[in-house]
Design a protein around this nucleic acid. Structure first.
Lengths: 333, 333
DNA sequence: TCCTTTTGGTTAATCGTTTTACCGATTTGA
DNA sequence: TCAAATCGGTAAAACGATTAACCAAAAGGA
């Protein structure tokens, strides 16, 4: 039988209000009673029922992280960052994975809202986020990470700087003389991809090279998808000398497909991947990656959520800079 | 201003009990009023406040997963499995990472308990789990995954079959003529490691070979830790012909350290790793791994939690079999 | 017709806290 | 000395649902 505040109060011969006050320090209570109550709390290992507390206080000290693809290592690292900061700040974290299905995402937000969650960090499945306004307009805090859209008004965002990411990767390849640079990506019509393509275009422009749509290849964001994309892209353009792959799993697939084609990396085709996985350095060849800091994105996102909770008008877009980790696969070391 | 059941009731000119009944189908209500209420619910997009509901019903449809190391890919995959099944069953999932610190684990369980969580899936930091009995003895459902101990009575467990894992890996190497087999592990005094060592010993016994403690090496469960462990182990025993590494990050470190030593895998030293990561197949050389199915462990764990919730006496230890994925690093293909 | 069920619905207790308003007793101030 | 302020403490109203108990009216049975 769970012990409640009432039980403590009865045994200490005080009112439950008094017990509440000593627990929360909301009123001064004589040392005598205070001691007695404290002892009983110890004795019974009593902890106030937080559901009741939440109901009364209309706050749960709980946030949720809603992601569109949990197995993705980039996402995993973000979750890691969010959880860490949440814990530090005394929040609990609900995790839900929408598996890239938008309807489920929408439903999820709705049930989380009804749970009196304090706020949500959302890594959305699509760019189709008008539905969020219904919540944000009543000051329910939502912050977007990774992907975003301007359709969601009044929503802070924290992302990697994707324009810079695309620019830096392309620039690095261009600088080393490549002129035909293929690009493989796993999702279309999301800000991450779009911005990176913009950056890529901008780099081309600075080198006075034309942009050619057909050097872009969309595939599934999986190992097999990466392989298939390379196959399709290279049969269309056998003159490609460098490749930028926007997803780590696809990078792995790309490499194995190229091995199958007996193409040498970087001699025949230079490669830059995105993200990072522990083994990037011992793969053959070690992969040059442009990386965004997912854990930092996660932590920052939680901080931003807190800001948003305390100030409903808070609304910034924080973009964290990428960095290029040069290894063998791009052919310049 | 959030709309409540009271608001709906007032506008429909019925009592709140009636509204509750139509929502939950707990009593037959005339079609007329039913329609009216439904419409209002639609109109206001009303969802019952679950905190209030939880308080009354003493159940939250929420489970928690408490892990000791979130960045670990094995753990990540388990979380993935748990989340998926939880979602399918209409549960929300709280995630907390204890970073291998036991005191925090204990505190965490305590606060989760006070949140009226329906149950916990725990991947513990240590084997020191007596403290759990305080909860399980009052029928608070806890299931252990991955690591376990018999100290926690009345607690179901779901794990990989670690004895078999150790046995199979060792047996495979022995079968191919290896006699001096080193073993590198990242955590000591946990069931996973202990059982695997037992399996390894048993395999040795079946080959009439002696067990030598000094072929075991404990290191940090990181890439750098794997490298350091190899260094230490090989300077102690330069006659080792095969290595079994119990952790995927350490495997990566081991490989790069061996490369530095100019040792060829598998010619100079055969290698079997544990777990699996997407790139295991394109690493140079591709790694032979003995794998346990983390996502399946996660899903199973949630099913077991449900069983435990519905039947407080439920108490099984489910062990899922490992499988050996043979690639180049063990020298037999 | 009269008694018993059934039906549709409401009242009010309950879940376990927090918090406002209040109260008598003591202390302070002038 | 008397009014005002402070102090330690409590009663009771929330918070927003669920649900047991109850009730009048309608329906059913003999």
């Amino acid at each position: 039988m769970k012990v409640t505040m009432k039980d403590i109060a009865k045994e200490a011969q005080v009112s439950i209000a008094t017990v509440s006050h000593v627990i929360n320090g909301t009123k001064h209570i004589t040392e005598n009673k205070q001691k007695k109550i404290m002892n009983l709390i110890q004795k019974y290992n009593y902890i106030p029922n937080s559901t009741a507390k939440n109901l009364r206080q209309k706050t749960t000290k709980t946030a949720a992280m809603v992601v569109s693809s949990l197995p993705d290592s980039f996402v995993t690292e973000m979750v890691y960052g969010v959880e860490e900061r949440a814990r530090e700040m005394g929040y609990n974290l609900l995790l839900v994975n929408t598996n890239e299905v938008k309807d489920y995402e929408e439903e999820t937000i709705s049930v989380l809202h009804s749970r009196m969650i304090d706020g949500i960090i959302l890594s959305p499945a699509s760019s189709d986020l008008e539905y969020l306004n219904k919540y944000t307009s009543e000051d329910f805090p939502v912050v977007l990470v990774n992907r975003y859209t301007d359709l969601a008004k009044n929503t802070p965002k924290v992302t990697g700087d994707n324009f810079q990411t695309g620019y830096d990767a392309a620039f690095h390849l261009l600088k080393h003389g490549h002129k035909k640079i293929g690009m493989i990506y796993g999702v279309s019509n999301v800000s991450t991809t779009d911005e990176r393509i913009k950056g890529y275009k901008e780099a081309l422009k600075n080198y006075n090279l034309p942009f050619n749509e057909s050097y872009m290849e969309l595939g599934h964001a999986t190992v097999a998808g990466g392989a298939a994309a390379v196959k399709s892209l290279l049969t269309r353009h056998n003159d490609i000398s460098a490749l930028f792959v926007l997803n780590d799993l696809m990078t792995i697939g790309a490499i194995s497909q190229m091995k199958e084609f007996l193409l040498k990396i970087p001699e025949d085709i230079a490669l830059i991947g995105f993200g990072d996985f522990a083994s990037a350095s011992i793969v053959d060849p070690p992969i040059t990656n442009i990386v965004q800091p997912p854990a930092t994105i996660g932590k920052t996102a939680f901080d931003v959520l807190l800001s948003k909770i305390h100030n409903p008008n808070y609304k910034k877009h924080i973009e964290l800079p990428p960095s290029l980790i040069v290894r063998k696969s791009c052919g310049c070391v």
